[in-house]
């Protein structure tokens, strides 16, 4: 069956408030399902929590080693870089906890042809697939990120102002939107070339570079990491916002660019979905 057919089965259009309420309810149900699933495997839960802590350490080691030999690198001091690492840890938690698991499941659906069952449900397919699976143990990463923020700003000795904090939060929203959009683009690719599960690994490995401030990269790498795979937007600019080093013009341009990116991703997803013809059934 085709996606357009599925869209027509949707119930009569309701007002935006009712729609919002309906989706909030759906979101709650999806969240509860994920939590229940995760709690079924308690031993796994502990192992995964340990892994999260270990990887936080692994993330820090190169930073510690680098700043063990230099006071500042490419204009960033040690505590300032820790702010970037904290952003990275926070975003990784969001990515691996909330974005990747669901969207990896879509790739599986497309390959097995079981996406039909999702498309048949009377709700927006992108919403359904994006909230299907959440891995709660990544909360460990969130706690770690907050601890890093606290340590870094304690070391700097100056806490971010309310305005800086506000910009930071806005950038967090933007970063999540961008991460999600890139992921949606990757998943959309799975409608054309079925075997993209390793594209997600490529995505993850590139995202790893986001633990460093963008200024350490020179030449072509800097351009790629600013515009093509915008890790600068993901961690460096938010960190600069918190540190009060970001001017308003850059901030607004970044926000605009991020939103445009999300809009494009949504369009591509719609196009890709229209192409979907079930694999098996």
């Amino acid at each position: 069956m085709t996606a357009t057919a599925a869209n027509e089965i949707r119930p009569r259009r309701a007002g935006p408030a009712a729609l919002l309420r309906r989706y909030a309810g759906l979101f709650r149900v999806q969240l509860a399902m994920s939590a229940l699933t995760a709690m079924q495997y308690r031993a796994d839960f502990v192992v995964k929590g340990l892994i999260a802590i270990l990887w936080m350490g692994v993330t820090l080691v190169p930073v510690l080693v680098v700043f063990g030999v230099r006071k500042s690198v490419a204009g960033w001091s040690f505590p300032e870089s820790l702010v970037v690492v904290a952003w990275f840890t926070l975003l990784r938690a969001v990515l691996e906890g909330a974005v990747s698991p669901s969207l990896t499941a879509v790739v599986e659906h497309v390959r097995h042809g079981t996406l039909d069952f999702v498309l048949l449900k009377p709700a927006d397919a992108q919403f359904l697939v994006s909230t299907a699976k959440i891995e709660p143990w990544h909360l460990v990463d969130v706690v770690g990120a907050l601890a890093l923020f606290a340590y870094a700003f304690g070391k700097i000795g100056r806490w971010p102002s309310l305005l800086n904090l506000g910009t930071g939060v806005a950038f967090l929203g933007l970063a999540i939107i961008i991460l999600y959009s890139i992921w949606i683009l990757v998943v959309s690719a799975s409608f054309w070339v079925i075997k993209v599960d390793n594209l997600s690994y490529l995505f993850g490995s590139l995202f790893d570079a986001a633990r460093w401030p963008i200024t350490v990269f020179r030449g072509a790498l800097r351009v790629v990491f600013t515009f093509v795979f915008p890790i600068a937007l993901l961690t460096t600019y938010p960190a600069m916002a918190l540190l009060g080093r970001l001017d308003l013009k850059t901030a607004l341009a970044a926000l605009g660019g991020g939103l445009a990116f999300a809009a494009i991703a949504r369009r591509v997803w719609r196009r890709a979905l229209a192409l979907y013809t079930s694999a098996s059934s």
Binding site: P62, V66, V69, R70, V73, A74, N198, L199, Y201, L202, G204, S205, L206, D208, A209, W212, V216, F217, R218, L221
Partner: peptide, 20 residues
């Protein structure tokens, strides 16, 4: 090729140590 490209960490670390 995609698998090979996922091993990019050494190049990132190289860029960083170059700056250092």
């Amino acid at each position: 090729l995609v698998w090979i490209l996922t091993t990019n960490m050494p190049l990132v670390m190289l860029a960083i140590w170059h700056a250092v």
